[in-house]
């Protein structure tokens, strides 16, 4: 089995926050959503997902509450807070700056 590429370091929080902008989700839903939206390229390991969610809770960027799923099971759903939305904006703009900067460097390397 070929090893899947790891997530870019530091992008997990941003991906989780972005995933939660559509609707509240439970941990498994977040992992699944990231996997599907990235066409199976990005897999979030559970070992990073749950600590990351605890971190986001501590920062007050997401809220958690226990709700029933469609299949009538209790699950912890995470909701984006206003502070989390603001943080997502900050992280997105930083990420775009970074990607643009990397792009410029690669462009230059190709022309040379």
């Amino acid at each position: 089995m070929a090893k899947k590429p790891d997530l870019l370091p530091g992008t997990l929080d941003m991906l989780i926050l972005k995933t939660l902008t559509r609707a509240p989700l439970h941990g498994y839903g977040i992992a699944l959503s990231i996997k599907r939206l990235s066409d199976d390229v990005l897999t979030v390991e559970e070992g990073s997902l749950y600590p990351a969610l605890q971190r986001l809770l501590l920062q007050g960027w997401v809220k958690a509450e226990w709700k029933m799923t469609d299949t009538n099971r209790r699950a912890r759903f995470y909701t984006l807070t206003a502070a989390g939305r603001k943080q997502l904006g900050i992280e997105l703009s930083q990420f775009e700056q970074m990607i643009a900067a990397i792009g410029r460097v690669l462009q230059d390397a190709q022309e040379a």
């Binding site: 226990w66 099971r73 209790r74 912890r76």
Partner: peptide, 17 residues
């Protein structure tokens, strides 16, 4: 206990899929 339940849920869902 909440973390346990959350992870059990995650495993069960993965298994179902």
């Amino acid at each position: 206990s909440e973390l346990d339940e959350e992870m059990a849920f995650h495993r069960d869902q993965a298994q179902k899929d």
